[in-house]
Amino acid sequence: MRRFWHVGLNVTDMDRTIEFYRLVGFEVVQDKELEDANLARAFMIEEGSKLRFAHMRLNNSPDEAMLDIIEWRDVPVTRERSIADTVNPGLCRFSILTDDIQGEYDRLSVAGVKFLHTPQTVMAPDGVNGWKILFAADPDGTLFHFVELVGDSAKH
């Protein structure tokens, strides 16, 4: 294995999603439209071939994992939004590490991002180390959260 490469997100409106993740801090690495039935079959889409995909990453660094965002153009969507939760099996969220969770909350709240709660602090039993956590959902309901490390782990 080499490294963690990307998280794939199916979306209903590519432009809206790109704008949302740009606001969060991601940059577009590539954005393409394709018509390729073989590619669709490889993704287990039997009756489609048209798609638009965008790769986005933080810090414009090839060492960062990407968001692989896909909008299928000729496949019927069976539901409008993701049914995301943090309990049931399956992808429940992805995480963005930050050094200033309150700053991200303030900046993005003003820009219209709807958070699921205010920043929360969770401390380890030692009372020194822990995390600050802040959950949000993208325009299609995919959950993600910001994490700020607290204590000794924040120094590394």
Rank of each mutant, 00 (worst) to 15 (best):
F115C: 12
D68R: 01
V75T: 10
F144N: 11
W5N: 10
K32I: 12
P76Y: 03
P62I: 08
V11R: 02
T86F: 00
M66N: 05
S49N: 14
H156C: 01
D106Y: 04
V110D: 13
H55G: 05
A136F: 00
D100A: 04
I133E: 10
V75E: 12
E27K: 07
S95P: 00
S61Q: 06
N59T: 05
T142Q: 06
K50N: 10
L58V: 08
G151V: 07
V29L: 15
F94G: 09
Q30S: 08
T118P: 03
I96N: 08
V128F: 08
L39S: 09
A54M: 03
A37F: 05
G141I: 06
A40N: 10
R52G: 07
G8C: 10
N129V: 05
A84K: 00
R73K: 15
N60R: 13
L108I: 10
R93H: 15
M56Y: 00
L23T: 14
P119L: 08
K32C: 01
Y105W: 02
D31C: 07
Y105K: 05
H156W: 11
E35R: 13
K50I: 03
L51M: 15
L116V: 04
G130P: 13
E19Q: 12
A37R: 14
V150A: 04
I69A: 03
V7H: 06
A42F: 03
V11W: 06
R73M: 13
R3L: 07
L23R: 13
V11Q: 02
R16Y: 01
N59R: 11
V29W: 01
V122Q: 09
P119I: 01
D126A: 02
L134A: 13
F146H: 06
G141K: 06
G8A: 14
D106E: 15
R57T: 11
S109L: 12
S49Y: 02
L51I: 10
A136Q: 03
V75P: 02
P119E: 00
M56L: 15
K50E: 11
F115Y: 03
A111R: 14
N10P: 01
S49K: 15
N59P: 01
A154M: 07
G130Y: 11
L97Q: 12
A111T: 12
G8D: 10
V75S: 00
T78D: 14
A42I: 09
E19V: 11
D138H: 04
L58K: 05
I70D: 04
G103K: 07
G112F: 01
A65H: 10
E64H: 05
S61I: 09
A37C: 03
R81Q: 09
E71P: 04
E148T: 08
D74V: 01
D36W: 09
I18G: 01
L67Q: 07
S49T: 09
